[in-house]
Amino acid sequence: MAASGELSKAPARTPLISPVTLLRIVLVLALLAIWELLSRSGWLYRDVVPSLIAIGKALIGLLSSGEYYSNLGVTAAEIAAALAIGGGGGIVVGLLLGGNRFLSRAFEIYLYYLGPTPKIIFFPVMIMWFGVGSGSKVALGALSCFFPVALSVAAGMRQIDKVLIRVGRSFRADTRQMITKIYLPAMRHPIINGVRLGLGIALIGTLLAETKLSNQGIGFLIINAYSTFDMPRMYANLIVLFALAIGANVVVGRLGGLHTIRR
């Protein structure tokens, strides 16, 4: 009886792979198997769905090419500049709209109406204003990411505990101190979420601009591979881009987590 009691008290073993992780792995493997079956079936036009081996070879060739990294650097610089300009502007506007009811009622409606508008329609204007170089791509990316960041920050401002605001005012904190000591620390999650969403939209806007008018950048490489019907190279570019986007998203999310731990 004592032995059976000891056995019942033994801690349960933690599985090496959680059920959620296992399900994700199975889903990815199933998608890869379906892709390979479509590639070998001949149901689609030639090379529209290339084999995984062909995509793997193209991926190795892509990552071993110095030209690819130079184009990647161009796109990364454009996205970083777009996020800094559009995201920074969105944070400032969000703070103003969220902290001032009059400004919110007067101007926030424009953000809701213009936010869902496809920003690519403004690209001809950006070309006229900033030329055909990187400036127009940065401008389109900044315009794309401005709206989600501004709306997220404005909504976060309204969710700040009123007690914190009253405490800051009771200590006679000026506007700068209220922003740096009260608003921004209390809004780290809305800001991080807005930046993550803005990063994705800035990425889309910048790449779309590169596919329309450019001779460098990842968007140019993708549209060039498509134009020459080099499908394995096109999919290889998309895979790398997808992996980099996920990595950047994880980094931004971890920065918010580190800030929380430090506090």
Results as ranks from 00 to 15, higher is better:
5 G>R: 05
107 F>Q: 11
203 L>S: 12
97 L>M: 08
158 R>V: 08
142 A>K: 11
161 D>I: 06
237 N>I: 13
157 M>C: 14
148 P>M: 08
182 I>D: 00
5 G>E: 13
133 G>Y: 02
224 N>Y: 09
103 L>Q: 09
136 S>A: 14
125 V>F: 05
175 T>E: 07
77 A>G: 10
116 P>R: 06
15 P>C: 10
74 V>R: 13
52 L>H: 00
253 G>E: 01
122 F>T: 04
219 G>Y: 09
70 S>T: 06
157 M>S: 08
177 Q>T: 15
99 G>V: 07
134 S>Y: 02
23 L>N: 10
255 L>T: 14
220 F>C: 09
252 V>I: 15
80 A>S: 12
27 L>H: 06
16 L>N: 07
209 A>Y: 05
45 Y>Q: 14
256 G>Y: 01
201 I>N: 07
136 S>V: 00
34 I>C: 04
253 G>L: 01
147 F>D: 13
91 I>M: 13
150 A>I: 01
77 A>E: 13
109 I>C: 02
133 G>V: 05
173 A>M: 15
73 G>L: 11
178 M>I: 08
217 G>A: 03
155 A>P: 00
47 D>V: 04
104 S>A: 07
245 A>V: 12
55 I>D: 03
84 A>L: 13
16 L>I: 13
10 A>T: 15
250 V>A: 11
207 L>Y: 04
129 W>V: 15
222 I>N: 10
214 S>Q: 09
69 Y>L: 07
132 V>Y: 11
105 R>K: 02
255 L>V: 15
177 Q>N: 01
148 P>T: 13
184 L>F: 02
176 R>A: 14
92 V>K: 12
66 G>A: 08
255 L>P: 05
74 V>L: 09
57 K>C: 03
234 M>Y: 13
243 A>K: 01
55 I>W: 08
167 V>M: 15
80 A>W: 10
186 A>T: 07
234 M>V: 00
236 A>D: 12
62 L>A: 12
143 L>T: 09
35 W>D: 10
16 L>R: 10
211 T>L: 05
159 Q>M: 14
208 L>C: 06
132 V>P: 09
25 I>F: 14
205 G>E: 10
235 Y>N: 08
31 L>C: 08
121 I>Q: 07
262 R>T: 02
221 L>M: 15
215 N>P: 05
232 P>I: 06
16 L>Y: 03
140 L>K: 07
22 L>N: 05
135 G>E: 12
120 I>P: 11
245 A>C: 06
86 G>L: 11
47 D>F: 02
193 N>Y: 11
122 F>G: 03
32 L>R: 07
87 G>E: 00
128 M>Q: 12
133 G>L: 07
213 L>H: 06
36 E>A: 04
88 G>V: 01
87 G>R: 08
29 L>V: 12
239 I>E: 11
26 V>K: 13
151 L>Y: 00
78 E>V: 03
1 M>D: 11
204 I>H: 01
67 E>Y: 11
143 L>A: 10
122 F>I: 14
